[in-house]
Design a protein around this nucleic acid. Structure first.
Length: 271
DNA sequence: ATGGGCACCTGGCTGC
DNA sequence: TGCAGCCAGGTGCCCA
């Protein structure tokens, strides 16, 4: 499910509900995620106050007095603000109960999500230590993309989805950003000219920014903290539009596979 | 170092 | 109606 815009939508959705609240309890119902929820986390969290909610890459960071929770939504995870009495459904993994009387409830059918705890700066955690720049930061620009793409023979699409190059760009937004930059997904990264790299960096920022403004993309099951879907799907130009007319030039959109993932592009608009 | 492929899971849809 | 097969928004790890 979630790429950067969906995680950011979730972050904004929970922020005002949890910041400044104390955790009264963590109730774990199913520890089985990509990695098991750490034993003893219940005791660590009880009584701690939440000081803020951040995001790094596709990880949500819930800052507490003595450390931070690091939460990944995987492919199918969602985190909602609910009354604790809301009936449980299949794949509800945990509740974080707050002193406001609300709770954060995490549901994840495919169990690709994860929950970690760190007593240190989350940026030093092994999962986050080696990741690339945030695409919406000013340090991420055409000059950076041009520099790190030198000598790289991978397809542009895979290059963008490599978290060491840039974080947050998943399968939907890689295709969308390449369409917006008018670049073919199969081109070698090393073929990027200075101008193209600048166009691509701008396209990534624009696509992600617009998707955040729309509350993310819901293809099947993404919902934000309020339970509502995202509305960016209506604004997709190529993703899941194989055979349909390009919104710019009416040429049929093509679907190919790169690294076992579906990729969509317009053979006329993208060079 | 780089790139490619696999594995981890459940559920929804398609076609026989 | 049942069932097999395929596909899905991520990413750490293994191997060449």
């Amino acid at each position: 499910m979630p790429e950067l815009p969906e995680v950011e939508t979730t972050r904004r959705g929970i922020e005002t509900w949890v910041t400044g609240r104390a955790i009264t309890a963590l109730i774990v119902r199913d520890r089985r995620l990509r990695w098991p929820i750490p034993a003893g986390l219940e005791d660590e969290l009880a009584g701690q106050r939440i000081t803020g909610v951040g995001r790094r890459a596709k990880y949500l960071l819930i800052y507490c007095q003595r450390g931070a929770l690091i939460l990944h939504l995987g492919m199918s995870g969602s985190l909602r603000v609910l009354e604790p009495t809301t009936p449980l459904i299949k794949h509800d993994h945990f509740d974080l109960l707050l002193d406001s009387g609300r709770c954060l409830r995490f549901n994840d059918p495919r169990r690709f999500g994860s929950l970690h705890w760190t007593g240190a700066d989350p940026g030093t955690h092994p999962l986050l230590r080696t990741v690339g720049p945030e695409p919406l930061d000013s340090s991420f620009d055409g000059e950076y993309l041009r520099r790190v793409s030198r000598g790289r023979r991978v397809a542009l699409k895979n290059f963008l989805m490599n978290g060491r190059v840039v974080v947050g760009v998943g399968n939907i937004y890689a295709s969308e950003a390449l369409f917006r930059a008018r670049l073919r997904p199969g081109r070698r990264a090393a073929s990027l000219t200075t101008r193209e790299a600048a166009r691509l960096a701008r396209a990534i920022k624009a696509v992600l920014g617009n998707a955040i403004r729309a509350g993310g993309t819901t293809l099947r099951d993404f919902v934000g903290a309020d339970g509502n879907p995202g509305y960016f799907r209506q604004k997709l130009y190529v993703y899941e539009r194989a055979g349909r007319a390009c919104r710019i030039c009416r040429t049929p959109i093509r679907k190919v596979v790169h690294g076992q993932r579906s990729t969509y592009y317009c053979p006329a608009c993208q060079k």
